[in-house]
């Protein structure tokens, strides 16, 4: 069991940035990021013990993370047992120029629907269209078409 825990910790640390980014893009404040992040980790741990390598570990992590964030009914329940994350940045309130740029990213991505948001995040992760399709459940061609539509939407947003 200890080997499993160590392996889990290693895998999570390798993908922690991606998980945090997704939780940030589906949250409205820092407490929500915290809640979602820990809910995601709990779901990953529960699934890790039964993980059968039917997909790559990266695909599996992104699926669990996105499904958790998209479907989370976090408005109803707020976890009280969360442990503080070792993060000393506040992406919602920090006022340096990088943080303002990051909030622009947040504002643009947040205006997209949840599935388009997921596609953009996967694309930003440098996944191929096939990999993105495997996470979302659509063909690589659909991914390409979707990205064109997303680009058009983003263009409309920046013209407003």
């Amino acid at each position: 069991m200890e080997n499993l825990e160590n392996e889990f910790e290693k895998i999570i640390k390798a993908h922690q940035n991606a998980i945090y980014t997704v939780c940030y893009m589906f949250s409205k404040d820092t407490d929500e990021i915290n809640d979602l992040f820990q809910e995601t980790l709990i779901n990953l741990w529960k699934g890790f013990q039964d993980f059968r390598n039917e997909s790559s570990i990266r695909t599996w992590i992104w699926r669990v993370c996105l499904n958790t964030c998209i479907s989370s009914e976090r408005k109803k329940k707020r976890r009280v047992e969360t442990v503080p994350l070792s993060v000393d940045i506040d992406l919602f309130n920090d006022d340096d120029s990088d943080s303002r740029q990051i909030r622009m990213l947040y504002d643009r991505i947040n205006q997209l629907g949840p599935f388009d948001r997921a596609i953009v995040l996967l694309w930003l992760e440098n996944m191929s269209y096939e990999e993105i399709g495997a996470v979302i459940g659509i063909s690589a061609k659909n991914v390409s078409v979707r990205l064109v539509r997303i680009k058009e939407e983003l263009k409309k947003m920046s013209n407003k």
């Binding site: 980014t21 070792s86 993060v87 990088d98 991505i109 930003l124 983003l154």
Partner: peptide
């Protein structure tokens, strides 16, 4: 978006995010 995401990732690279307490709590 890619440029802004690169900024986000470079900020997150400097963070530990996950700590021992968190992993133990999750498990």
């Amino acid at each position: 978006l890619r440029r802004m995401n690169d900024l986000l990732q470079s900020k997150l690279d400097k963070q530990a995010i996950i700590n021992k307490d968190l992993i133990e709590r999750i498990i």
